[in-house]
Amino acid sequence: DHDVVPEDKFQETLHLKEKEGCPQAFHALLSWLLTQDSTAILDFWRVLFKDYNLERYGRLQPILDSFPKDVDLSQPRKGRKPPAVPKALVPPPRLPTKRKASEEARAAAPAALTPRGTASPGSQLKAKPPKKPESSAEQQRLPLGNGIQTMSASVQRAVAMSSGDVPGARGAVEGILIQQVFESGGSKKCIQVGGEFYTPSKFEDSGSGKNKARSSSGPKPLVRAKGAQGAAPGGGEARLGQQGSVPAPLALPSDPQLHQKNEDECAVCRDGGELICCDGCPRAFHLACLSPPLREIPSGTWRCSSCLQATVQEVQPRAEEPRPQEPPVETPLPPGLRSAGEEVRGPPGEPLAGMDTTLVYKHLPAPPSAAPLPGLDSSALHPLLCVGPEGQQNLAPGARCGVCGDGTDVLRCTHCAAAFHWRCHFPAGTSRPGTGLRCRSCSGDVTPAPVEGVLAPSPARLAPGPAKDDTASHEPALHRDDLESLLSEHTFDGILQWAIQSMARPAAPFPS
């Protein structure tokens, strides 16, 4: 592969990997390779389809078979030569091979799209000592099968071997295949498990690692696999990028399955594409389908809103127990993405979901129960707010008499603000006073009005108090039968009158 990737590009890729991570280095090298001529790309395919690569990765054979028959990708048995050289000459001794072996032994695996480039050397060096003999053996194999790289107009793939297949390693990572398949204008990513390549439709969760975000852009890794992070704060999961590491605690105790298979379609829109997988259930989501939507993949363990709600429900009964003089119970939860139609709101002032922060849900004790107040519409209280300059209440639009249902020339009671006709409430011909108009209920007259088809109010509507207090003497005590009587009149003013009279009014101040 030294004929494909020059030394300066190799060093530039290593520097970019240390600065921005393996995914960015892979993407940059792939983009550079696509700008080369067809001879360089053909050399790339020839390096990929060597015999030892085909033996190690069985899924490469179907890719090789898909090439046109007129494309010669065979390799000479006596060494490598550029395709432009007409004579089959043995190339001179390859010093770059020693360079590659020494550099890969030092860096474990470079971040390139060629056999030198995919593992994360920093994480491997940190986690190597417990498994040094086995990992050293794996390093000797890295130059042979560490990076199976493929690129063409139909298929483009980048393979990364790992030393996680050490025997006896619980939940060992089998390997990473960062794979971009450009077929019919689409893009897919796969993962390699035990020599087999699994596409998103049959993606397997190998051991402790999972394909957290099938994305090839942005600074985030394709698999949430930063070796420096180790395990999740809650004892979460091992990262795919942690090559040759000792077994780590796999999943939280509440995880239903340690080796679950995540779905390959969004649980909201039932469509495929780039998904984020939940650590607590097999569901996966688009970032845009979450509520609120996320802009980037959160670091650490992530769970959907259903799993978060289940966790909150487990903690909430203990938080609601009476604990005198104790601060509110704080339950730190990872930043969760909410699927459509589901929402768990945190306290005000918290950062938005999706940031690399930890939301704190506070379970406050329930407030003391209070008697429910009568629910009145805002339009129902409008007549009470229509007060004239002299303190006389004006008529609201649409006000109707509670007896006849007519809204023409209605009066407004100064005591309960109900609309009424003087002739309907006082049919006996009582003279109307000039000021202080009161309806039949507030004036103490319980004589029913002779209106055909309208039920008369119940005599129990009024329960006047002592006459010594004029204001308190007109406080009506309405009961269920009074409400039914008012409802039978089918008037809004009657219902409003009952609601206003049912509310307690402050006692009249004593004259000074």
Rank of each mutant, 00 (worst) to 15 (best):
P509Q: 09
E350S: 10
S339E: 14
S254M: 13
A310C: 09
G388R: 09
V446A: 06
D356H: 13
S379L: 12
P348T: 09
I297Q: 05
G436V: 12
Q257C: 07
S245N: 06
L496Y: 05
A371F: 13
P427G: 08
H259Q: 04
L250D: 10
A267W: 13
F492S: 00
D470A: 09
P298V: 13
A419G: 07
L352Q: 13
L487P: 01
G429F: 13
R432T: 00
L437I: 07
A353P: 09
A380W: 12
D470R: 05
A319P: 09
A251S: 11
L455C: 06
H363Q: 12
P457G: 15
A419M: 04
V451Q: 15
S254F: 10
L290T: 14
H382M: 00
Q316P: 08
L437R: 10
P459N: 12
P317K: 09
A340F: 03
C442L: 02
E314W: 13
A353W: 15
T414F: 06
P464W: 06
G349V: 13
G398W: 13
P459G: 10
E489C: 02
G336C: 13
T435S: 09
S305D: 11
V315S: 08
A248C: 10
A449Q: 07
F420N: 03
R338D: 10
L250I: 08
Q316T: 12
T311N: 10
D406C: 12
K468T: 10
P367T: 08
V344K: 09
A248D: 06
G300T: 05
S441E: 12
S485T: 15
P389Y: 14
S291C: 10
P293Y: 12
Q497I: 02
Q325P: 11
E326S: 13
P292T: 07
E343F: 04
S245A: 08
C439R: 02
G272Y: 11
G272L: 14
I297N: 08
A288C: 09
R400P: 05
G434C: 07
R303Y: 02
L250A: 10
R323Y: 10
E274K: 12
L478P: 06
D481M: 05
A399Q: 07
T430K: 10
C281Q: 04
S379E: 06
A456E: 06
V329I: 14
T357S: 07
A428T: 04
H474N: 13
G453C: 05
T447Q: 03
R303T: 08
V315G: 10
S502A: 11
